[in-house]
Design a protein around this nucleic acid. Structure first.
Lengths: 210, 210
DNA sequence: GTCTATATGGCGATAGAC
DNA sequence: GTCTATCGCCATATAGAC
């Protein structure tokens, strides 16, 4: 961890490309390493995700980690990309299937996701390449969310000048995240009142009281 | 870092108590260690705050860290307490001097504070004792914020059933934090619109449009 | 693609001198 | 209260056999 930061940014790493089942790969070693790293990060923090622990959890030997990922930072980057792609996919599916604003709330308040987000944000605050990648994905997420909220508000006849979709989607997504964060550390005071208030505000929007 | 987690929770640590200037101590070693740790955590993350680096930054030798703090977790706990006490003090001062809701926004959206918060939350998610302490301080912060918001809303004649102070203070503080978090990673899209919207909502509250 | 073995160095923590 | 010295362990990363 500490020493990895010394290494300059290195290339993308690894083998396997081209013709391969694109989604939800078999038990490929590379994918198992990424998955193992994600689990350790979630459960014990990024500092606990060492090459030895990751390898053991994935059922391989430590040195093999460096065959797939030149440095540990490359592995963390792969975890970020994998999680972000999955989140984008989930967003695209869910936002078209249910009420977008409630879906935004539900997805973003899940403590399992917010714990991982906190870990990645801590990493992003101190590692340039990871910060850049996180920013990139966050922008794509926000664009998708904003587009969905735009359609939703428009269908309710809401004035988009008074209630800019980018603002509404930020409000809902970020407040939901805070709730998830607080839940993760055992803070739940005010959550019921908050959810009730949010729900009431949304009902007002939907009914045309604006 | 990794190994420290093995040690059980140990006592509070250290010497010096009793009669001493209570605030903003001289260059006492203990305080300099806490300060050095906080700076490293902010700049490079908690994983970089090792006993050796902290000691060097504070101008002492590594072993002395263990004279003041039995384990590194005790040092992190001291950093949390010190920061939390300072934050409580700042809150108490500021909330009585300016408009409480705008003060809440200003304080919580400061990226310098949100970066440190993210670091402490990551730590809290994975270290029981730190989680407990963070929860304790977060509850005190919320109580103070809620009390200030209650007075503010009441003075504007706002219906406290329709706009519960705990909800308003959570909304303002947490959205402000999100803005700080995003700013820290270089994400600023939508921030202007968001601030404008928040300001407009608050103006509505203050004018009695509710 | 996966392994064994190893180089090199930082870590938390303790013992004991001054 | 601060230091020097050290123990034992774990870290990232590489070399090279299979």
């Amino acid at each position: 961890m500490t020493t990895a930061a010394r290494k300059g940014p290195s290339g993308k790493a690894g083998p396997r490309r081209a013709t391969e089942r694109p989604k939800v790969d078999d038990g490929g070693t590379r994918q198992r390493l990424v998955q193992a790293t994600a689990e350790i990060m979630h459960d014990e923090g990024y500092a606990a995700a060492t090459s030895r622990r990751v390898a053991t959890k994935a059922g391989v030997k430590q040195a093999l980690v460096y065959y797939y990922f030149p440095t540990m930072d490359d592995l963390f980057l792969a975890v970020l990309r994998s999680g972000a792609e999955a989140a984008l996919e989930q967003l695209r599916t869910v936002l078209t299937e249910e009420d977008p604003i409630r879906a935004l709330w539900r997805i973003n308040s899940d403590p399992r996701q917010t714990v991982m987000s906190t870990e990645l944000m801590a990493l992003a605050n101190h590692r340039k390449v990871i910060g850049a990648e996180l920013r990139h994905f966050a922008e794509r997420v926000r664009d998708i969310e904003t587009a969905a909220v735009t359609m939703s508000l428009r269908s309710y006849g809401v004035d988009l000048e008074a209630y800019p979709p980018v603002v509404i989607s930020m409000l809902v997504a970020q407040i939901a995240r805070s709730v998830g964060n607080e839940t993760a550390v055992g803070l739940t005071h005010g959550h019921d009142e908050l959810e009730h208030f949010i729900e009431a505000q949304f009902a007002l929007l939907a009914k045309g009281n604006h």
